[in-house]
């Protein structure tokens, strides 16, 4: 039962960390919105899905790569990858702002109950995924390979593949940038102020609507970056791909303590590793069950998440 885990421990760990960083970025989309609005951003999974399509369209339609063309090299490679990343972030960020504008803003202004907002968010996520389903005829879309999956070397018997390494370092870098933004910038300060105490922040002259739009935008940008890395590693997308990713990332956000950016980091990495190890020990089909059972246990015994500081107290 544990042979696979022991045999391939290091290669599983590397895969888990790469997956974990993708989760970290997607769960930022959940956790930041939750921090500010105290509401689950239900449409984030669809924002991710739109991001994956943004990535593929860039390489396929703008740069003209096909399934058979040779992977890029040199400066061209960097150009294509960076424009894919930017495109994915732009698409996801704009989608997130659109979602906020359509599904959340009016209801927030009315100050109505949370359930109505939840249903409205569910409605917009149905619209987003159905629109993509119609556009793609329900077919899965493969991504042309831009980044060749060269094996760079071996560490403790584990292969270091170029795409996983790029994912780990670039995702960590983007996470770091976003964290700095929230920590140091004026807007980031406003975001944190609103998530601590909305009324007091308003009294101090914080423009609430702008803060909330920015939060959605930043969350969307992170989710979009994750979508790019996801495509680089897995090279495939479909209109309903957001669901599984959304569930996992949301679980990660809760594991780390939702509403807490650090928490998303730890939660995402923990979940990525847990998923990879669990599928090595129990088989891939039980992976999701393990994740949910851990989630339920964590919520029962440590409702503020495994690693996060007590969210309730920082906000009170």
């Amino acid at each position: 039962m544990f042979e696979v885990l022991i045999d391939q421990f290091w290669s599983l760990t590397i895969a888990g960390v790469a997956l974990g960083f993708i989760y970290v970025l997607v769960s930022l989309g959940y956790t930041m919105v939750y921090g500010v609005l105290r509401m689950i951003n239900f449409a984030n999974s669809e924002i991710f899905m739109w991001g994956t399509f943004g990535t593929i369209i860039t390489s396929r339609d703008i740069f003209g790569y096909t399934q058979t063309s040779a992977p890029a090299t040199g400066p061209k490679l960097a150009l294509v990858l960076i424009s894919q990343l930017l495109m994915s972030m732009a698409v996801a960020g704009l989608t997130a702002v659109f979602v906020e504008y359509v599904a959340y803003r009016r209801l927030r202004a009315k100050g109505t109950n949370r359930l109505a907002t939840l249903i409205s968010a569910i409605g917009i996520s149905i619209v987003l995924s159905e629109l993509m389903r119609l556009l793609t005829d329900s077919r899965p879309v493969g991504s042309p390979r831009v980044l060749e999956k060269i094996i760079l070397g071996e560490v403790w018997g584990a292969n270091l593949r170029l795409d996983t390494i790029v994912t780990i370092f670039a995702a960590a870098g983007i996470y770091f940038l976003l964290e700095r933004f929230v920590k140091l910038s004026r807007m980031g300060k406003a975001i944190r102020a609103v998530s601590m105490n909305e009324d007091a922040a308003k009294l101090m002259g914080v423009n609430l609507n702008r803060v909330i739009t920015t939060t959605f935008l930043v969350g969307g940008l992170a989710t979009g970056a994750a979508a790019f890395f996801y495509i680089t590693v897995f090279e495939y997308t479909k209109f309903n791909i957001g669901f599984t990713m959304g569930m996992a990332a949301f679980t990660a956000a809760v594991l780390g303590g939702i509403g807490n950016i650090r928490g998303a980091f730890y939660g995402g990495l923990f979940l990525g590793l847990l998923e990879v190890y669990a599928s090595a020990v129990l088989g891939t089909q039980w992976k999701a069950v393990t994740v949910f059972i851990v989630l339920v246990l964590v919520l029962l015994f440590k409702p503020n998440g495994l690693f996060g500081e007590a969210v309730q107290t920082t906000r009170a």
């Binding site: 009016r106 209801l107 109505t112 907002t117 249903i119 409205s120 409605g123 619209v127």
Partner: peptide, 19 residues
């Protein structure tokens, strides 16, 4: 497009009759 319309109906009704 029926699910698309369904989603739109949810958004619109919730925005104009939140209760």
């Amino acid at each position: 497009a029926r699910l698309l319309v369904f989603g739109l109906v949810l958004v619109i009704v919730m925005n104009f009759r939140p209760d």
